[in-house]
């Protein structure tokens, strides 16, 4: 038994929520029922009029939290840098929005905001005094496709290393540790007419220990380009770059700054493991490094539901939590 704690990101329940099967309170009750300690929320998803949600919503949230005993762990926020169609927001506008998000997160009782990948790094230093005052950590998401190699991630980590503040850190999405392309994604795209040769091409890259990250950023190699017959083929290749196959040691230099993990998953198998990500080895690595933060379930298999099938994120999260509990 280690000190790693478990949470669930309500991102997991987005389909149940949008279809009215689960309310925000219903989500928290589900977490209480399955014995999860913490919750992560995308405020833009389950609160209205963010980043200035009203006092009544904040009060209602606090009551839900008190009633269920679930701990607010992380608030996923976005800066709408492309709010307008004809220009990007200025630095001042971005900073003002970030400050509003920090205030809202504080009011909701979150000790941390997750800045989405590609959040402008030039506003971080100026927002830091407010983050300190409110006691809210700002942590950039390191997500597959936009992970440590990414220029915008690097801009943030440079500032993070330079300022070395306890209020700056990283949220690591475990999608950077895929050993195989999720087969639920493959099935979804095959159903839409994906060329099976491309499936094999991508699977072979993973099998060789590499990942298709480069394919989504560069011109395709000639042999792969020849296999592309449709828009679906191109989409599959583009999205394949969103699953990286990195060794855990990629985290070594960053571990002192890692504040939180997104336990990404697409499919819990009948054997009780995740199809793509080796969670046992990951948890062993985190134990060895003495990680004491949370890992939050982030189910993303719902987007690959085949036409006519129901999404059951509740069951998937329960299975993943059982797995995490046994490894921790």
């Amino acid at each position: 038994m280690s000190s790693i704690k478990r949470a669930v990101s309500l991102y997991s329940y987005q389909d149940e929520y949008v279809r009215g099967k689960l309310t925000l309170e219903g989500c928290l009750q589900e977490l209480a029922e399955i014995g999860v300690e913490g919750v992560e929320v995308i405020t833009d998803q389950m609160f209205h009029n963010t980043p200035e949600t009203d006092d009544a919503s904040i009060k209602a949230w606090k009551e839900m939290v008190n009633k269920t005993g679930i701990v607010p762990v992380c608030n996923d926020i976005f800066i709408n840098t492309n709010l307008y169609h004809n220009r990007m927001l200025t630095k001042k506008e971005n900073l003002d929005f970030l400050k509003k998000e920090l205030v809202q997160a504080h009011k909701l009782g979150f000790p941390m905001v997750r800045l989405v990948s590609a959040t402008p790094a030039d506003i971080i230093e100026e927002a830091l005094p407010l983050a300190e005052e409110l006691n809210v950590i700002m942590a950039l998401e390191v997500h597959a496709g936009m992970a440590f190699d990414n220029a915008m991630t690097k801009k943030f980590t440079d500032i993070m290393f330079k300022l070395n503040s306890p209020y700056l850190g990283l949220v690591v999405d475990t999608g950077i540790f895929c050993r195989r392309h999720p087969r639920v994604s493959t099935a979804f795209f095959l159903d839409q007419g994906l060329n099976p040769e491309i499936v094999k091409y991508i699977d072979d890259i993973f099998a060789s220990g590499d990942d298709p990250l480069e394919l989504s950023h560069n011109k395709l190699p000639e042999d792969l380009e020849k296999m592309v017959r449709s828009r679906i083929d191109r989409e599959y290749i583009l999205f394949a770059g969103g699953y990286e196959n990195k060794d855990f040691s990629v985290l070594d230099p960053y571990m002192p700054y890692v504040k939180h993990f997104h336990g990404k998953f697409w499919e819990m198998t009948e054997e009780g493991t995740e199809y793509s990500i080796p969670y046992k080895e990951l948890i062993d690595y985190l134990k060895e490094k003495g990680y004491e933060g949370y890992i939050a379930s982030e189910y993303e298999g719902g987007r690959f539901a085949l036409p006519g099938t129901e999404i059951d994120a509740v069951a998937q999260v329960r299975q993943q939590q059982d797995m995490l509990r046994s490894y921790i």
């Binding site: 987005q14 949008v18 833009d44 998803q45 963010t50 709408n80 492309n82 709010l83």
Partner: peptide
């Protein structure tokens, strides 16, 4: 219609 995204956005971002 429901939004084809996982969060709410200001109307100016509905392209």
């Amino acid at each position: 219609t429901r939004i084809t995204y996982y969060r709410g956005i200001p109307l100016s971002m509905v392209h």
